[in-house]
Amino acid sequence: MRRLRSLLTDRLALGLLVLAALVLGMPALKPLFAAAFPALDRPLYEADGFLALTLDHLALAGGASLIAVLLGGAAGIAVTRPFGREFRGILDAVAAMGQTFPPVAVLAVSVPVLGFGPAPALIALTLYGLLPIVENTVAGLESVPEPVREAARGMGMGPGALLWRVELPLAAPVILAGVRTAAVVNLGTAAIASTVGAKTLGLPIIVGLNGSNPAYVIQGAVIVAALAVVLDAGFDRLAARLTRWRPNAV
């Protein structure tokens, strides 16, 4: 009983449960959609399995976010070291300006340059995801107090130990906020990427909108929304874990 209650108040566990039920159990809801939309011949999207669409969606959004974390993190670290300081200003400017570009427009513009399909979509999402990650990596590393750095050097930490043991853990909450922004944007843009030839959960939505089939639209939309809620809860959990040492940690 207590287990059940803790499950119901745990947004992440509950979200995962609902997500799994929707992804795996959507076919079981066919009668419901048939009843709600009696005018439709096909009340359930069956051209692709929802599990396969979800996995492809996650591969695109997650893959792009992961590559962006590695590249963006490396770039953010590089421009805060002495050897890369010269590139700091231009990187800041690009990151700030690039983030005003709407992600959907960036995705669209990538098609004439890179072509249709999942790979160009992955590149577009990665490039866009880089911006908040770079920006926050730099901001996070800069927020490390100078006395902490001096104490670390004074006790004999080399540049590597300083970075891995002190600077990155202290910057982690800020970096994580950037990763979160990138992941949330990528999750949404990946849905729209079904218009540029990537099979994702956006596909039932687009097909439904073009074919006036609201049932398809709703089926795609609820799974994407559930994914978003799970992602949000997951990042909340991670952020709480990374900030336990802070004064106002919950």
Partner: peptide, 22 residues
């Protein structure tokens, strides 16, 4: 090596510089 030298010495500064995450 600076690191070797520093590990043999203690160092205390006015602003303390404790690692806040530890």
């Amino acid at each position: 090596k600076p690191e070797t030298l520093r590990r043999r010495m203690g160092y205390v500064i006015q602003s303390v510089g404790l690692f806040p995450h530890w």
